[in-house]
């Protein structure tokens, strides 16, 4: 009995090892886009998105991409962390990491684990400490939420800045195009005795 459970758990761990946790995904990329994106590295067996129930809505999406073998998964992580890899848009790259068992909500029980719990007697000294620990947990969550919020703000700022950069670049290129197309550039070149730009 226990063996069977262990087997199942081992099987699960193997699955975890050949899975890549992909983060910083746009929520607009459907499963098929992800699949085709990672099919470049090897056959994708399964893609599932991790739901975001509690965090702010604007958070990037995370997904678990199960590859065929552990090696393939490693290769994906290596490539994606070396080169910026775009999925469903640019220039924000995605990030890949090893998946953790806790990322699977349907994970099997760890074999042989027994869970115990007890109610603390309100009169004992432990009680106050436990209360304190509870407050601490809430505090931690609040802190983490704050950090996340801050991060999102930063991300937004960066995105705005980048889009401005792109727009400026674009405008510049358009001006140059215009100059070349209307022949102004060539006129100027001959006027100043410079080598003319090749006319397109």
């Amino acid at each position: 009995m226990a063996n069977r459970e262990e087997e199942k758990y081992d099987e699960f761990l193997k699955k975890v090892r050949r899975t890549v946790y992909v983060d910083e995904l746009t929520p607009h990329a459907p499963k098929s886009v992800l699949e085709s994106a990672f099919n470049q590295f090897g056959t994708v067996k399964d893609v599932r998105f991790l739901p975001n129930y509690l965090g702010p809505k604007e958070l990037p999406i995370g997904a678990l991409v199960e590859m065929e073998t552990e090696e393939k998964a490693k290769a994906v992580i290596e490539t994606v962390s070396q080169f910026p890899f775009m999925v469903g848009g640019m220039p924000r790259p995605v990030r890949a990491n090893t998946a953790k068992p806790e990322m699977f909500c349907d994970r099997p029980r760890k074999p042989g684990r027994r869970i115990q719990c007890r109610w603390i007697d309100p009169s004992s000294t432990e009680y106050e400490k436990a209360k304190k620990a509870k407050r601490l947990v809430l505090k931690h969550t609040a802190e983490a939420a704050f950090v996340t919020k801050k991060q999102l703000e930063d991300a937004e700022k960066l995105a705005k800045q980048q889009s401005e950069t792109v727009t400026t670049h674009h405008e510049k290129i358009e001006i140059i195009d215009k100059l070349i197309n209307t022949g102004v550039a060539q006129k100027l070149a001959s006027r100043y005795n410079m080598k003319s730009l090749p006319y397109r």
Partner: peptide, 21 residues
């Protein structure tokens, strides 16, 4: 999604192919 810039010349409405830049 912040961080994805739409191409200025609107191409087809498909998602850009995933690639390394």
């Amino acid at each position: 999604f912040c961080g994805h810039i739409k191409p200025h010349k609107p191409q087809r409405d498909t998602m850009a192919t995933s690639r390394c830049s």
